[in-house]
Design a protein around this nucleic acid. Sequence first.
DNA 1: GGAAATCATTTTAGGCTTAAAACAATTCGG
DNA 2: CCGAATTGTTTTAAGCCTAAAATGATTTCC
Lengths: 172, 172
Amino acid sequence: MPAVSDCINMLDSETKAVETPEDHAEELRLWLRLLTCTTLIEGEVRGRLRQRFDVTLPRFDLMAQLDKAPDGMTLSDVSKRMMVSNGNVTGLVERLVESGHLDRRTSETDRRVQVIRLTKLGRAEFRRMAAEHETWIADLFADLSPKDVRELMRLLAKTKASAQKSAARRRP
Amino acid sequence: MPAVSDCINMLDSETKAVETPEDHAEELRLWLRLLTCTTLIEGEVRGRLRQRFDVTLPRFDLMAQLDKAPDGMTLSDVSKRMMVSNGNVTGLVERLVESGHLDRRTSETDRRVQVIRLTKLGRAEFRRMAAEHETWIADLFADLSPKDVRELMRLLAKTKASAQKSAARRRP
DNA sequence: GGAAATCATTTTAGGCTTAAAACAATTCGG
DNA sequence: CCGAATTGTTTTAAGCCTAAAATGATTTCC
């Protein structure tokens, strides 16, 4: 419910309601702050992955998805999970197969489908990177109390739901 | 202070302390959720900018920086503000000058420096896009109460500070 | 004054990313 | 069954992005 004061400039000099855009500055500031946090952390992680393991963040992310799926995933699954385009995954997988980290085969039951999984090498390297990665994240969030973490989790869950709803409204 | 139960598996069968990696699963989950939220919203904004105005998000972001600086900015300033590489800005600016949205000139007092500003066209188009953009953001965050927004702002400020501190520790 | 360090920007090489179109295989509806 | 939609993937064209090296201008410090 908007306060009376918020309505003052919705009335013109003749005290007739006019179309005045609502003020959404707070949400805008929130979005910019969210983006800043993510960019900051992402850049840091990207740099450390490159320095320590000479690997890119997208490759690491892709391997992380596969590590959770011992039986492999289809390219579409990966693309949905990573929230990136299909063509993007095609290229990433190409390079990771080339470097021996991924195994790729056409599904027996549906010849459209490509199933990819980590190779032994891929899994071993990922585990090694993931262990260190986890300590970086812990360090980056070190000044948040457990309560802060819980509260952020809760609010971000709410944010995600809100954004998904809004996206669905536009593209039903 | 860790609870006693957290220490149980830090003792091996002979009741001697062993090196056990700490559990940072919560922070990791928090980071993934933060990333998911940002990716979701960013993708939505990117798509809407393209559909409605045929403009990319990086171009919009760059114009947003310049809109706040009527006297223009140097490329370095822009690069720092946007948290992207210098070379990246060079390319973006090139295309925006080409399309008539930006004006670029060498500083009178320091011939290393390039000062860029919005042209009349650039400013007009940006204002038009920004107004609509603000409503998208408001809609994406619509299910958050004002209190949620405040609380999220607070926690993200804390997160940003923590991450900056951690980044500074590595790269002093 | 001049060499050395610093600073702002550009270039380079490689990879990431997207939207849209194209292709290929499967499923669905008559 | 068979044509039409759908689905999974790849290709294409364009743009974004980075780190590192190169270039050019300015400042610093003997």
